[in-house]
Design a protein around this nucleic acid. Structure first.
Length: 356
DNA sequence: AACCGGATCAACCGCCCGGTA
DNA sequence: TTACCGGGCGGTTGATCCGGT
Protein backbone atom coordinates (compact mmCIF):
# COMPACT_ATOMS: atom_id res chain seq x y z
CA UNK A 1 0.00 0.00 0.00
CA UNK A 2 1.37 3.31 -0.98
CA UNK A 3 1.85 5.90 1.62
CA UNK A 4 -0.53 8.79 1.39
CA UNK A 5 1.08 12.17 0.98
CA UNK A 6 1.53 14.16 4.11
CA UNK A 7 -1.03 16.58 2.83
CA UNK A 8 -3.03 17.39 -0.20
CA UNK A 9 -0.50 19.00 -2.45
CA UNK A 10 -2.97 20.39 -4.92
CA UNK A 11 -2.91 24.15 -4.81
CA UNK A 12 -0.26 24.30 -2.16
CA UNK A 13 2.55 26.75 -2.56
CA UNK A 14 6.13 25.61 -2.64
CA UNK A 15 9.43 27.36 -2.73
CA UNK A 16 10.76 30.27 -0.77
CA UNK A 17 8.63 31.78 1.92
CA UNK A 18 7.47 35.35 1.58
CA UNK A 19 7.57 37.80 4.49
CA UNK A 20 3.79 37.75 4.52
CA UNK A 21 3.74 34.01 4.94
CA UNK A 22 6.33 34.22 7.67
CA UNK A 23 4.24 36.80 9.44
CA UNK A 24 1.13 34.67 9.22
CA UNK A 25 2.93 31.65 10.56
CA UNK A 26 4.57 33.60 13.34
CA UNK A 27 1.37 35.29 14.33
CA UNK A 28 -0.55 32.07 14.42
CA UNK A 29 2.00 30.16 16.45
CA UNK A 30 2.46 33.06 18.80
CA UNK A 31 -1.21 33.03 19.53
CA UNK A 32 -2.10 29.37 19.40
CA UNK A 33 1.09 27.36 19.35
CA UNK A 34 1.69 25.11 16.43
CA UNK A 35 -0.54 22.29 17.61
CA UNK A 36 -1.07 19.89 14.77
CA UNK A 37 1.21 20.85 11.95
CA UNK A 38 -1.09 19.29 9.44
CA UNK A 39 -3.99 21.41 10.54
CA UNK A 40 -1.98 24.55 11.02
CA UNK A 41 -1.82 25.88 7.44
CA UNK A 42 -5.58 26.04 7.05
CA UNK A 43 -6.02 27.66 10.43
CA UNK A 44 -3.27 30.14 9.76
CA UNK A 45 -4.45 30.92 6.28
CA UNK A 46 -1.39 29.54 4.57
CA UNK A 47 -1.32 27.71 1.27
CA UNK A 48 1.43 25.46 2.52
CA UNK A 49 1.62 21.92 3.73
CA UNK A 50 2.10 21.37 7.42
CA UNK A 51 5.49 19.92 6.89
CA UNK A 52 6.67 23.02 5.12
CA UNK A 53 5.35 25.12 7.98
CA UNK A 54 7.13 23.01 10.53
CA UNK A 55 10.39 23.23 8.63
CA UNK A 56 10.08 26.95 8.23
CA UNK A 57 9.41 27.33 11.90
CA UNK A 58 12.09 25.04 13.21
CA UNK A 59 14.80 26.10 10.81
CA UNK A 60 14.17 29.79 10.45
CA UNK A 61 11.40 31.48 12.36
CA UNK A 62 11.93 29.99 15.78
CA UNK A 63 13.13 32.85 17.98
CA UNK A 64 15.74 30.86 19.81
CA UNK A 65 17.81 30.29 16.72
CA UNK A 66 21.27 31.67 16.57
CA UNK A 67 22.24 32.60 13.07
CA UNK A 68 25.48 33.63 11.54
CA UNK A 69 28.95 32.32 11.47
CA UNK A 70 29.85 29.29 13.49
CA UNK A 71 32.34 29.89 16.25
CA UNK A 72 35.49 27.87 16.61
CA UNK A 73 34.00 26.18 19.60
CA UNK A 74 30.99 25.19 17.60
CA UNK A 75 33.14 23.91 14.78
CA UNK A 76 35.12 21.81 17.21
CA UNK A 77 32.00 20.40 18.70
CA UNK A 78 30.58 19.51 15.33
CA UNK A 79 33.70 17.72 14.22
CA UNK A 80 34.05 15.84 17.45
CA UNK A 81 30.46 14.82 17.58
CA UNK A 82 30.46 13.86 13.94
CA UNK A 83 33.40 11.62 14.58
CA UNK A 84 31.37 9.95 17.24
CA UNK A 85 27.87 10.04 15.82
CA UNK A 86 28.22 10.32 12.08
CA UNK A 87 25.53 12.11 10.15
CA UNK A 88 23.11 12.22 13.02
CA UNK A 89 22.54 15.90 12.72
CA UNK A 90 19.68 16.14 15.11
CA UNK A 91 21.76 14.45 17.78
CA UNK A 92 24.64 16.77 17.07
CA UNK A 93 22.30 19.73 17.15
CA UNK A 94 21.21 18.87 20.67
CA UNK A 95 24.73 19.74 21.78
CA UNK A 96 24.80 23.03 19.92
CA UNK A 97 22.28 25.34 21.48
CA UNK A 98 20.40 27.57 19.10
CA UNK A 99 21.66 25.78 16.03
CA UNK A 100 19.39 23.69 13.88
CA UNK A 101 20.24 20.32 12.49
CA UNK A 102 19.75 21.67 9.01
CA UNK A 103 22.19 24.47 9.62
CA UNK A 104 24.74 22.13 11.08
CA UNK A 105 24.30 19.73 8.21
CA UNK A 106 24.80 22.48 5.69
CA UNK A 107 27.82 23.80 7.50
CA UNK A 108 29.37 20.40 7.62
CA UNK A 109 28.78 19.72 3.96
CA UNK A 110 30.00 23.09 2.77
CA UNK A 111 32.81 23.85 5.18
CA UNK A 112 34.01 21.23 7.57
CA UNK A 113 33.87 18.23 5.29
CA UNK A 114 36.00 19.99 2.74
CA UNK A 115 38.50 21.10 5.30
CA UNK A 116 38.97 17.60 6.55
CA UNK A 117 39.28 16.33 3.01
CA UNK A 118 41.91 18.91 2.25
CA UNK A 119 43.85 17.70 5.22
CA UNK A 120 43.75 14.17 3.98
CA UNK A 121 41.23 13.16 6.57
CA UNK A 122 38.32 11.08 5.46
CA UNK A 123 35.33 13.11 6.62
CA UNK A 124 33.26 9.97 6.94
CA UNK A 125 35.58 7.90 9.06
CA UNK A 126 37.67 10.76 10.44
CA UNK A 127 40.72 8.75 9.65
CA UNK A 128 43.65 9.81 7.55
CA UNK A 129 42.99 8.70 4.04
CA UNK A 130 46.28 6.86 3.87
CA UNK A 131 45.10 5.10 6.96
CA UNK A 132 48.42 5.56 8.63
CA UNK A 133 46.88 4.57 11.87
CA UNK A 134 46.72 0.99 10.78
CA UNK A 135 49.27 -1.02 12.53
CA UNK A 136 50.39 -4.50 11.90
CA UNK A 137 48.79 -5.81 15.03
CA UNK A 138 45.29 -5.12 13.92
CA UNK A 139 44.75 -1.97 15.83
CA UNK A 140 42.48 -0.73 13.09
CA UNK A 141 39.87 -3.23 13.99
CA UNK A 142 40.22 -2.27 17.61
CA UNK A 143 39.74 1.32 16.71
CA UNK A 144 36.74 0.49 14.64
CA UNK A 145 35.34 -1.58 17.44
CA UNK A 146 35.94 1.23 19.86
CA UNK A 147 34.15 3.67 17.64
CA UNK A 148 31.34 1.26 17.14
CA UNK A 149 30.95 0.84 20.85
CA UNK A 150 31.02 4.54 21.43
CA UNK A 151 28.43 5.09 18.76
CA UNK A 152 26.29 2.38 20.28
CA UNK A 153 26.62 3.97 23.63
CA UNK A 154 25.68 7.35 22.29
CA UNK A 155 22.71 5.83 20.54
CA UNK A 156 21.58 4.31 23.77
CA UNK A 157 22.07 7.58 25.55
CA UNK A 158 20.10 9.48 22.95
CA UNK A 159 17.31 6.98 23.16
CA UNK A 160 17.30 7.45 26.89
CA UNK A 161 17.14 11.18 26.41
CA UNK A 162 14.23 10.81 24.07
CA UNK A 163 12.48 8.67 26.62
CA UNK A 164 13.16 11.18 29.32
CA UNK A 165 11.87 13.90 27.10
CA UNK A 166 8.63 12.06 26.63
CA UNK A 167 8.33 11.47 30.33
CA UNK A 168 9.08 15.09 30.97
CA UNK A 169 6.41 16.22 28.55
CA UNK A 170 3.97 13.83 30.10
CA UNK A 171 4.66 15.16 33.53
CA UNK A 172 4.47 18.71 32.31
CA UNK A 173 1.09 18.03 30.81
CA UNK A 174 -0.11 16.37 33.96
CA UNK A 175 1.04 19.04 36.30
CA UNK A 176 2.31 22.44 35.44
CA UNK A 177 3.39 23.10 38.97
CA UNK A 178 5.06 19.94 40.02
CA UNK A 179 8.56 20.78 39.01
CA UNK A 180 10.97 22.87 40.91
CA UNK A 181 12.14 24.33 37.67
CA UNK A 182 9.92 27.05 36.41
CA UNK A 183 11.18 26.58 32.93
CA UNK A 184 9.90 23.06 32.92
CA UNK A 185 6.45 24.20 33.59
CA UNK A 186 6.06 26.75 30.88
CA UNK A 187 3.20 26.17 28.56
CA UNK A 188 4.92 24.30 25.81
CA UNK A 189 1.91 23.58 23.74
CA UNK A 190 0.81 27.15 23.68
CA UNK A 191 3.96 29.20 23.58
CA UNK A 192 6.73 26.99 22.36
CA UNK A 193 9.38 29.64 22.53
CA UNK A 194 8.54 31.19 25.84
CA UNK A 195 10.89 29.03 27.68
CA UNK A 196 13.31 28.43 24.90
CA UNK A 197 15.22 25.24 25.02
CA UNK A 198 14.09 24.56 28.50
CA UNK A 199 11.07 23.09 26.91
CA UNK A 200 13.04 20.60 25.04
CA UNK A 201 14.07 17.25 26.19
CA UNK A 202 16.12 17.13 29.31
CA UNK A 203 19.34 16.43 27.63
CA UNK A 204 22.87 16.06 28.50
CA UNK A 205 24.65 19.03 27.10
CA UNK A 206 28.04 18.19 25.82
CA UNK A 207 30.32 21.09 26.23
CA UNK A 208 33.89 21.16 25.25
CA UNK A 209 35.95 23.43 27.30
CA UNK A 210 39.45 23.97 28.37
CA UNK A 211 38.34 25.57 31.58
CA UNK A 212 36.09 23.11 33.25
CA UNK A 213 36.97 22.27 36.79
CA UNK A 214 38.65 18.97 37.37
CA UNK A 215 35.56 17.56 38.92
CA UNK A 216 33.93 17.55 35.55
CA UNK A 217 33.85 14.34 33.59
CA UNK A 218 36.85 14.06 31.42
CA UNK A 219 37.53 12.23 28.28
CA UNK A 220 41.21 12.10 28.02
CA UNK A 221 43.24 10.29 25.48
CA UNK A 222 46.92 10.20 25.90
CA UNK A 223 48.81 9.30 22.81
CA UNK A 224 52.37 8.25 22.93
CA UNK A 225 53.04 7.58 19.34
CA UNK A 226 51.46 8.10 16.04
CA UNK A 227 51.76 7.89 12.38
CA UNK A 228 49.50 10.43 10.90
CA UNK A 229 51.05 11.92 7.90
CA UNK A 230 49.23 14.95 6.81
CA UNK A 231 51.55 17.22 5.02
CA UNK A 232 51.66 20.79 4.01
CA UNK A 233 49.54 23.71 4.82
CA UNK A 234 46.09 24.16 3.56
CA UNK A 235 44.86 27.63 3.79
CA UNK A 236 41.22 28.27 3.99
CA UNK A 237 40.97 31.55 2.24
CA UNK A 238 37.43 32.13 3.28
CA UNK A 239 38.13 32.01 6.94
CA UNK A 240 41.60 33.40 6.78
CA UNK A 241 42.71 30.57 8.96
CA UNK A 242 45.50 28.20 8.32
CA UNK A 243 45.51 24.50 8.82
CA UNK A 244 49.02 23.49 9.51
CA UNK A 245 48.87 19.77 9.16
CA UNK A 246 52.43 18.78 9.56
CA UNK A 247 52.87 20.65 12.77
CA UNK A 248 49.47 19.87 14.04
CA UNK A 249 49.67 16.19 13.47
CA UNK A 250 53.15 15.93 14.76
CA UNK A 251 52.05 17.59 17.88
CA UNK A 252 49.28 15.12 18.16
CA UNK A 253 51.76 12.39 18.75
CA UNK A 254 52.73 13.78 22.08
CA UNK A 255 49.93 16.12 22.73
CA UNK A 256 47.59 15.15 25.46
CA UNK A 257 44.14 16.01 24.33
CA UNK A 258 41.68 16.62 27.03
CA UNK A 259 38.08 16.87 26.31
CA UNK A 260 36.13 18.02 29.22
CA UNK A 261 32.63 16.85 28.87
CA UNK A 262 30.17 18.42 31.12
CA UNK A 263 26.92 16.71 31.57
CA UNK A 264 24.30 19.27 32.28
CA UNK A 265 21.22 17.54 33.49
CA UNK A 266 18.17 19.69 33.61
CA UNK A 267 14.79 18.94 34.94
CA UNK A 268 15.29 15.24 35.27
CA UNK A 269 17.75 14.77 38.04
CA UNK A 270 15.82 12.16 39.89
CA UNK A 271 15.05 10.11 36.85
CA UNK A 272 18.38 10.31 35.23
CA UNK A 273 20.82 9.76 38.02
CA UNK A 274 22.53 6.51 37.35
CA UNK A 275 19.98 4.61 35.40
CA UNK A 276 21.10 5.95 32.09
CA UNK A 277 24.41 5.18 30.53
CA UNK A 278 27.08 7.60 31.48
CA UNK A 279 30.10 8.32 29.42
CA UNK A 280 33.18 7.92 31.37
CA UNK A 281 36.50 7.71 29.73
CA UNK A 282 39.63 8.10 31.68
CA UNK A 283 43.20 8.29 30.70
CA UNK A 284 44.77 5.73 28.48
CA UNK A 285 47.58 5.31 30.91
CA UNK A 286 45.19 3.64 33.27
CA UNK A 287 43.94 1.35 30.63
CA UNK A 288 42.35 -1.73 31.97
CA UNK A 289 42.23 -5.05 30.30
CA UNK A 290 40.28 -4.87 27.12
CA UNK A 291 38.38 -8.02 27.87
CA UNK A 292 36.42 -6.12 30.42
CA UNK A 293 34.49 -4.75 27.54
CA UNK A 294 34.54 -1.32 26.17
CA UNK A 295 30.84 -0.88 26.42
CA UNK A 296 30.74 -2.00 29.98
CA UNK A 297 33.42 0.43 30.79
CA UNK A 298 31.59 3.19 29.07
CA UNK A 299 28.48 2.32 30.92
CA UNK A 300 30.30 2.02 34.17
CA UNK A 301 29.10 -1.43 34.88
CA UNK A 302 32.33 -2.53 36.39
CA UNK A 303 32.04 -3.75 39.87
CA UNK A 304 34.55 -1.18 40.94
CA UNK A 305 32.15 1.52 39.94
CA UNK A 306 29.02 -0.15 41.06
CA UNK A 307 28.56 2.46 43.68
CA UNK A 308 27.88 4.77 40.87
CA UNK A 309 24.56 3.13 40.31
CA UNK A 310 23.74 2.69 43.89
CA UNK A 311 24.32 6.18 45.11
CA UNK A 312 21.15 7.25 43.48
CA UNK A 313 21.35 10.82 44.62
CA UNK A 314 23.42 13.37 42.82
CA UNK A 315 25.26 12.65 39.69
CA UNK A 316 28.35 14.66 40.30
CA UNK A 317 30.23 11.91 42.01
CA UNK A 318 29.74 9.77 39.00
CA UNK A 319 31.62 12.18 36.89
CA UNK A 320 34.68 13.12 38.75
CA UNK A 321 36.87 11.45 36.18
CA UNK A 322 39.32 10.41 38.77
CA UNK A 323 37.51 7.14 38.83
CA UNK A 324 38.80 3.96 40.19
CA UNK A 325 40.67 1.25 38.47
CA UNK A 326 38.01 1.16 35.81
CA UNK A 327 38.20 4.71 34.72
CA UNK A 328 40.94 4.37 32.21
CA UNK A 329 39.88 2.35 29.29
CA UNK A 330 41.44 3.00 25.99
CA UNK A 331 44.28 1.15 24.54
CA UNK A 332 47.11 3.11 23.11
CA UNK A 333 46.09 2.55 19.54
CA UNK A 334 42.73 4.00 20.17
CA UNK A 335 44.37 6.87 21.92
CA UNK A 336 46.36 7.62 18.86
CA UNK A 337 43.35 7.68 16.68
CA UNK A 338 41.38 9.84 19.00
CA UNK A 339 44.28 12.10 19.55
CA UNK A 340 44.30 12.64 15.86
CA UNK A 341 40.72 13.75 15.93
CA UNK A 342 41.02 15.74 19.06
CA UNK A 343 44.19 17.38 18.04
CA UNK A 344 42.55 18.32 14.83
CA UNK A 345 40.04 20.37 16.62
CA UNK A 346 42.08 21.43 19.57
CA UNK A 347 44.88 22.72 17.45
CA UNK A 348 42.62 25.04 15.59
CA UNK A 349 42.56 27.27 18.55
CA UNK A 350 44.20 30.55 17.72
CA UNK A 351 46.57 29.97 20.58
CA UNK A 352 47.69 26.69 19.07
CA UNK A 353 48.68 25.87 15.60
CA UNK A 354 46.10 27.49 13.41
CA UNK A 355 44.08 24.94 11.62
CA UNK A 356 40.78 26.53 10.92
C1' DA B 1 29.86 44.15 -18.61
C1' DA B 2 29.00 39.49 -19.34
C1' DC B 3 29.75 34.92 -18.43
C1' DC B 4 30.95 31.01 -15.71
C1' DG B 5 31.64 27.97 -12.00
C1' DG B 6 31.84 27.18 -7.21
C1' DA B 7 29.79 28.17 -2.68
C1' DT B 8 25.96 28.70 0.19
C1' DC B 9 21.68 27.63 2.29
C1' DA B 10 16.63 27.42 2.43
C1' DA B 11 13.46 24.19 1.26
C1' DC B 12 11.70 19.86 -0.38
C1' DC B 13 11.38 14.79 -0.59
C1' DG B 14 11.01 10.31 0.95
C1' DC B 15 11.72 7.22 4.55
C1' DC B 16 11.31 5.85 9.25
C1' DC B 17 9.38 5.48 13.80
C1' DG B 18 6.35 5.99 17.73
C1' DG B 19 1.69 6.57 19.08
C1' DT B 20 -2.93 5.29 18.63
C1' DA B 21 -7.42 3.69 17.28
C1' DT C 1 -2.32 -7.21 15.88
C1' DT C 2 -2.37 -4.05 12.39
C1' DA C 3 -2.99 -0.11 9.69
C1' DC C 4 -2.87 4.67 9.77
C1' DC C 5 -1.28 9.22 11.17
C1' DG C 6 1.78 12.81 12.63
C1' DG C 7 6.15 14.21 13.22
C1' DG C 8 11.14 13.87 12.83
C1' DC C 9 15.26 12.92 10.32
C1' DG C 10 18.80 12.77 6.74
C1' DG C 11 19.71 13.31 1.88
C1' DT C 12 19.16 16.09 -1.96
C1' DT C 13 17.82 19.92 -4.86
C1' DG C 14 17.65 24.36 -6.75
C1' DA C 15 17.82 29.32 -6.40
C1' DT C 16 20.87 32.81 -5.31
C1' DC C 17 25.22 34.87 -4.31
C1' DC C 18 29.89 35.86 -5.23
C1' DG C 19 34.39 35.94 -7.00
C1' DG C 20 37.31 35.11 -10.96
C1' DT C 21 38.13 35.55 -15.87
Amino acid sequence: MGRSPCCDKVGLKKGPWTPEEDQKLLAYIEEHGHGSWRALPAKAGLQRCGKSCRLRWTNYLRPDIKRGKFSLQEEQTIIQLHALLGNRWSAIATHLPKRTDNEIKNYWNTHLKKRLAKMGIDPVTHKPKNDALVSSDGSQSKTAATLSHMAQWESARLEAEARLARESKLRSSLSFTSSSSASTTALPALKPWNSGRDLESPKSTLTLSENNPPTMPIIEFVGTSGSCEAAGVVKDEGDQREWNHSNGMENSMSYTSSLHHELTISNMEATWTSQEPLLRIGTGRDAVAEDQGFTNLLLNTNSDDRSLSEEGGGESENWDGSGGAGSGILCEDNNNYWNSILNLVNSNSPSHSPMF
